[in-house]
Design a protein around this nucleic acid. Structure first.
Lengths: 222, 222, 222, 222
DNA sequence: TATGAATGAGCATTCATTCAT
DNA sequence: CATGAATGAATGCTCATTCAT
């Protein structure tokens, strides 16, 4: 995005430029197929400088994953207002998720596709991030169960499975929404809320989950 | 599995041995990181023989993807009895799916992880297979809607999104079931049917979807 | 030329088929770039059979060179009638040479181009053949000098150089005649006889060497 | 020649070292049989550096051919003084030609033997160079005819054939002079001038072409 | 006589990485 | 801070050749 400035620059800026380039390349080609050459060229610097700043290809990939993971989880966290009911919190989290993945497709590709297909250091990083999100969703489900006055609530393993299912559905819909022209992140979130909260059975009976009317948040795409 | 027979063998046998090895290696490392060396060694043959029979690394990967995709879709197709109601068909399909992915984890890794992260010939192959499955699920949803006497049924795009969500949830649960000790394919399928058919809302109200009692199909299929 | 017969055949026939194929392939691609694969396929037999008959690639090339060299020197020898004057003998030899090289371009390519560019066993073979031809030409020049009543005749080294020059000119004209549409072997031979016998000086003075009228030999192309 | 300097050096120097090595190896073995390994070793560098600077084996061969072709045609051009009569110009050109080929036998081998036996990019390059030389010779012959007051001069095709013959004779004599101890480039040129200008017929009559006495050009050029 | 099965050795090329300046 | 010069180690692929049948 935008012309890369060349010449001497503070280290922090250079590092961000490099990571921007890395996200592009890794997102498109993956870790193994990407060459340091290409990364340095896209970042507008020489190859040795890449090594000077970020020791090795592995460190580069790790840094890239961490930055993108932090950006994604941060976006979701910031999108959720804590006080609301569980389904409203989930709704807001999903909207933030779909919005972020739509805006950062390469970053999402790194996290969802590339990082998982390469040996241990990276897969673990992704697993941690994903576990965090799944735990968040599981917590919401437990809260919802509690709100519905169920004691004992759903068994723990069931909750874990349901959260896994929901997150998997979200990941799938993110790709679908990005690939299907005309599907907004709002629609993707609504589809998923209907599916997850109301279930197909209720949908058959014309009892959808209804998304709340949003007064004035107007974030571009949503 | 087990030591590979050595010595002279007919071509067809060797080709299967090779594809078995390829699934292992590609499933673990991915296309780019896998070396032909390694594959040949695991197959118990010399490298040139791999080229003699399967031409190139790309052809090898393609053949591997095709074989595994055919095995998976075939398993699901064979697991579903056509006459039943939509939810029963979905239930059976999911059981077959989770059983197959649990039994062939490397094959599933090739299809779900590796093939999607490498250039066009492979991603397209996978996209085609996945589209087939999504279409099957979408059809089931439409049938269910028709069975519930709804006219007009759900809008087409909604159905597509729901099917995507369901398939994504299944993919996610397959990994979860494989990674979580003690989770059977039956439980994974039950979790997903609850999630998909009843929805979280109904689950909160203690109205789960109930899996059918299976009379005499035994442990054979999971 | 013509469909290759397949199935069991006497060894001698098979060997000629193989050498025919070898001449084609070596003539076009050269020794190193030609593959045994290709040769076997063009000969219509399996690779091991090639080894059974003609031990190795080197032997194959050697056999090919020998056959083509014998054919060429034989054609020249047969074309020359011994009793004539030196210039007539040269004239007839050149006609035979140009005719043969025009009819067997791949064989000529093997001898003139390919065999000389590959290590010692082959270059020596070619050098021997060429030396034979050069010696024949040198002898003709000596005879001509004797006929002109010169004693002492030209110094030996001069004769050798002149013969080399004449043969080189012939080689060059062979390629030129093959590449230039409309130039017959007769014209090529006439050009060379003029050049060699009369010399540019005489040609400038309009004193060409005149080719004899050939009564009834009419060999197609000449 | 002599041990190659090692250590860090500017790119231009390394490239010349590489091309020097390439001429040796290609001249001896030809394009196909030469290995990049061998070339790098002879140049005193590592293989990757060859690729870094000259891209590929094909580019290497092309660069080598171009350098040697330019050197040869340049030497001939520089050896000829334009004002002289046609035979004197030819004489000087031949002297330069034989001198150059004697001093650069590997380069000459690359041009005359190796480059012609390998596929199209190279053969075309050589054909162009050779055509340039043949055209130069043909022009000299035409000038000579004009000087001799002949109108109409020789037919165009005859001139082309004569030039081809002369160039072929020169090529042949270059190899002969290099292989025959004691034959200088001057003698080779004299032999060829006699052959070409006087012709065998005149030589038989003791009417050779006489090379000019060279006053003070010394041994420098041959 | 003839072939399908199989391989050891080599080769062009690439890439992550280092070092001297 | 930044780079031009340089390389060790792999990797995909080919080929001449052998052997069991």
């Amino acid at each position: 995005m935008g012309a890369v400035r060349t010449g001497r620059m503070p280290r922090a800026v250079r590092e961000q430029q490099m990571l921007d380039a890395v996200v592009q390349i890794f997102g498109r080609r993956g870790h193994t197929a990407a060459s340091m050459d290409e990364i340095a060229e896209l970042a507008g610097i020489s190859e040795p400088l890449v090594y000077l700043y970020l020791n090795s290809k592995e460190d580069l990939f790790t840094a890239c994953i961490r930055r993108e993971a932090a950006a994604l989880t941060g976006a979701v966290r910031d999108g959720v207002r804590p006080g609301l009911s569980a389904d409203r919190q989930l709704w807001e989290g999903l909207r933030a998720f779909f919005t972020h993945t739509a805006r950062h497709p390469e970053g999402w590709a790194v996290l969802h596709l590339q990082a998982r297909t390469h040996g241990e250091p990276f897969a673990a990083e992704i697993a941690a991030m994903r576990a965090e999100i799944v735990a968040f969703v599981a917590e919401l489900i437990l809260v919802a169960a509690r709100e519905a006055h169920h004691d004992p609530a759903l068994p723990e393993r069931d909750v874990a499975g349901l959260a896994e299912a929901l997150v998997g559905a979200a990941e799938s819909l993110a790709a679908w929404a990005n690939a299907t022209p005309g599907v907004t992140s709002r629609q993707a979130a609504a589809t998923l809320m209907n599916f997850a909260w109301a279930g197909l059975g209720d949908l058959m009976e014309n009892r959808p989950w209804s998304p709340p009317v949003e007064p004035a948040r107007g974030q571009g795409r949503g």
